[in-house]
């Protein structure tokens, strides 16, 4: 049986932990709200951009490939961009992304001669793959809690250059889509070359099917068909050269934004659970503390009565 002192120490320690987890929960809640707002605010833009991309995609057929970003090649090298967080203690958030990435690698690597390289966004992904002997081709950390478009420039540059210099023939991204505070979903999306199906998936993925964030009307986006041939001013080539890279950047930015919102909500839930568990622990420790104290008192009483009885005899 533990002594009174050790139980008291344990209660104190647990109380401290509870205080920390509760503070972390509060911080994550605020950050979640903010990054959620950022992610939601970017959604109309992202849907509009993706729709635009989808519309002009058909126009690229005549007159050959208008942009190197649209070029479809035989796939030998695949680049997988893995979006995780820099910090841990976010429940299953990073583990889920990494699991999905691992699964993707396993499924893709079945075909012979396919080489998969990794680009890691966030410290956790970098560490994970380095530890497993699959050193990332490139990794970035320090994407703040509230990313600005300029901050994803490195990621975008790397992805674009790898593809344009034919180091890789397709690019996928695995990230966590924010559905609600309680629900996030890890998804794999094809970034390059731009393809109709990939874009449609991305647009559908942006708007959750239910909940109060479902305000983006997906049907609107997907149903735009037969818009007719577009005029391009000044010229199709110029438009494609500037528009496609911008849209690629937006896609990457959006993925990181969603991941951020998911990270914070996942951490908030994890910390709330930790706080609840600490409360339970304290309760059960208090019970055993009271029991130990009571039995100590009983023992003392027995000793005193035993002593006084021995005296009177």
């Amino acid at each position: 049986m533990a002594t009174l002192r050790t139980i008291r120490l344990r209660i104190k320690g647990t109380k401290n932990i509870k205080q920390i987890t509760r503070a972390m929960e509060a911080v994550s809640a605020v950050k979640m709200r903010k990054s959620q707002q950022a992610a939601l605010a970017a959604r109309p833009y992202a849907t509009a951009a993706l729709r635009l991309l989808k519309n002009i995609h058909g126009s690229s057929v005549e007159g050959g490939v208008l942009s190197p970003l649209l070029e479809k090649r035989e796939v030998k090298n695949t680049l997988l961009v893995v979006v995780t967080s820099d910090k841990g203690l976010a429940g299953p958030f990073n583990a889920n992304v990494l699991k999905k990435a691992e699964q993707f690698i396993k499924n893709t690597a079945v075909e012979p001669k396919k080489v998969i390289s990794i680009a890691a966004v966030g410290k956790k992904a970098g560490e994970y793959f380095s530890r497993r002997g699959r050193t990332p081709a490139n990794s970035w950390t320090g994407h703040g809690d509230f990313v600005e478009l300029g901050e994803v420039e490195h990621v975008f540059d790397f992805v674009r250059k790898s593809f344009e210099q034919k180091k890789v023939d397709e690019v996928f991204v695995v990230y966590t889509n924010f559905l609600s505070a309680m629900k996030q979903e890890v998804v794999v999306r094809k970034l390059l070359p731009f393809s109709e199906e990939g874009l449609e998936e991305m647009v559908k993925g942006i708007a959750p099917d239910k909940g109060r964030f479902a305000e983006v009307n997906v049907q609107d986006v997907v149903d735009v068909v037969n818009v007719g041939e577009y005029l391009f001013e000044p010229s199709p080539k110029e438009i494609f050269d500037t528009l496609l890279p911008t849209l690629l950047k937006i896609e990457i930015y959006h993925a990181i934004l969603e991941a951020n919102a998911s990270e914070h909500s996942s951490r908030m839930i994890a910390m709330r659970n930790a706080t609840d568990n600490a409360g339970e622990l304290i309760k059960s420790y208090t019970v055993s503390l009271n029991k130990a104290r009571q039995s100590a008192i009983n023992k003392e009483l027995a000793e005193i009565t035993g002593g006084s009885e021995a005296l009177t005899q």
């Binding site: 818009v227 007719g228 577009y230 005029l231 391009f232 001013e233 110029e238 500037t242």
Partner: peptide, 10 residues
Amino acid sequence: LPNHAPLISH
């Protein structure tokens, strides 16, 4: 104006 031809521009 309304009923403009489809156009994309920078």
